[in-house]
Design a protein around this nucleic acid. Sequence first.
DNA 1: GACAAGATTGACT
DNA 2: GTCAATCTTGTCC
Length: 206
Amino acid sequence: MTEAAERLRAVLARRPLEAAPDLLGIVLRAGARAGRIVEVEAYEGQDDPASHAFGGPTDRTRVMFGPAGHLYVYRSYGIHWCANVVCHADGMAGAVLIRAVEPIEGVEAMWPDRPKAASVTDLASGPGKLCAALGIEGGHGGVDLLDPGSPVRLEAGLDADGPPVVAGPRVGITKAVDRRWRFAVDGNPHVSRPRPPGFGTAGRRR
DNA sequence: GACAAGATTGACT
DNA sequence: GTCAATCTTGTCC
């Protein structure tokens, strides 16, 4: 475990709502493919009706109750994979959904898995898209993202100060929709839904 | 064992 | 803008 990884683990071992904006700018790597995280959503655990962890641990969600920095992958609508970073202290449920990344490495290798992508900004501009682009699937669930030997891992970004962040309501859920727990890099073209109504108007900047 | 719902995407009108 | 695809998980009987 490197010093940078330890620092990142400490960042993640907080409430997802606090850790989520700090994930922006960090690089998500899967083998030779890598992308900078530009959009995330926070999901608290048992206090959040929209979270899969609401209602207690199950076989599927157990990893969310484990130590921070692990990967939680689930299938959405039977078709797409969605990747989450486990947050919060060990024993406390919480996760941050990665909604979009900006491809920065191994872009050529992403195209075969994203044949329908219209442009590079469309390669990973969505939860299901980024998993396809990076080759993340169910088998990766539970891996330690901070272990250099993992097939999928996080690498501290170069933006020491962190990019400008805007906040808005979460997307695609039917419960607790009023919580403005979606965070994105301001103005980045790789976010899944650029500037939706109300996005950023009452958000938190840092 | 059966059924309903879902943190999405892409095609079609 | 609207809608279907597709399948895993959790709940209920």
